[in-house]
């Protein structure tokens, strides 16, 4: 029983991290149709900002999330105007941006390596302790991450459905030319979406590094996992993405406990591939018909 509970708790912790990543990445897919491997640089950004704010500057923990928020906004803005904008204006955007973002991920990793050094640093923004149930501990960090994941999802859904910003982003993603004719500034709304994405990604970086340490390639694993999760859930479906994040988190942790830690990710990938063999558009995805 307590092994089962242990699997549930660690699955909850891992799943909530994947979920936060999936939320941010699915915003980008929904807006511009891009899969962003440079997400790993944003995660590391959150971790290093947290380390810098608390350990180097010695500031209070209250400042960590706002600092990550700001840094994410700035990086998202730069990312859009330096790179994405120019690739978006050419053909084959969805594949070219993957190549460019792989390069950007490596560039980010190298920048952190040269600026902060390669050694793993302890990320100070974390909650110690937890609730004990039948000898198994549910850490406060897990509870907090789940809470933030759900909160981010709710906020993002509200922004996308209720506010003018969300309306603009949805309009632009459906019909860029028509919305331009209606007087929407397409560049600006894409830039806003990227800033929103950057802030969410950097905050998720603070949470993800809270259970491990901060090192240049810290976000690589969870980025690839979040992308795989989005694909198996069917891209563009936020709720299915969150559900899949938790389901695959439980699967991975279950395999980790039963077969050993090295089979966690491969078995998760095998599951995803089997699903995609039967449903190439994802578990909850619908077949997309393009009119010509």
């Amino acid at each position: 029983m307590d092994i089962f509970l242990q699997i549930v708790f660690s699955g909850l912790a891992v799943g909530s991290m994947y979920a936060v990543g999936a939320i941010a990445l699915s915003l980008l897919w929904g807006t511009m149709g891009m899969l962003n491997i440079a997400h790993t640089a944003f995660i590391a950004l959150g971790g290093y900002i947290s380390y810098w704010t608390m350990t180097v500057m010695g500031a209070n923990w209250i400042f960590v999330l706002p600092m990550a928020f700001l840094a994410g906004i700035v990086m998202g803005y730069i990312y859009y105007h330096l790179i994405i904008r120019h690739i978006y204006s050419k053909e084959n955007f969805s594949v070219n941006i993957i190549i460019a973002s792989v390069a950007l991920a490596a560039l980010g990793e190298n920048a952190y390596l040269n600026l902060a050094g390669g050694e793993a640093l302890r990320q100070p923004f974390r909650f110690n302790g937890g609730l004990e149930m039948i000898g198994v501990v549910l850490t406060f960090q897990t509870i907090f991450t789940v809470f933030v994941a759900v909160l981010l999802m709710v906020i993002l859904s509200l922004i996308m459905s209720k506010t003018k910003l969300g309306q603009v982003i949805r309009a632009v993603s459906q019909q860029p030319t028509a919305s331009k004719l209606m007087g929407i500034n397409v560049q600006k709304s894409f830039a806003t979406a990227l800033m929103l994405y950057g802030s969410i990604a950097a905050i998720s970086g603070v949470l993800v590094t809270g259970t491990s340490q901060v090192f240049p390639s810290v976000g690589y694993d969870s980025t690839v996992k979040a992308l795989v999760i989005l694909i198996v859930a069917g891209l563009g479906n936020l709720r299915a993405g969150i559900f899949m994040a938790f389901a695959l988190g439980f699967l991975e942790m279950g395999v980790n406990y039963v077969l050993g830690a090295r089979y966690g990710f491969p078995s998760m990938l095998a599951f995803v591939i089997i699903v995609l063999l039967f449903k190439p558009n994802g578990f909850f995805g619908k077949e997309q018909i393009t009119r010509v």
Binding site: S94, I98, V102, V224, R262, L276, P280, N281
Partner: peptide, 29 residues
């Protein structure tokens, strides 16, 4: 056979994931 039926960008991510999984399996042996 497992990936080709997917759409373009999906293939990029899935094949990258396969390569990473393979590296992890080898390193942790």
């Amino acid at each position: 056979a497992t990936i080709i039926r997917l759409r373009g960008p999906y293939i990029a991510v899935m094949t990258l994931a396969i390569a990473i999984a393979m590296q992890k399996l080898i390193v942790s042996d």
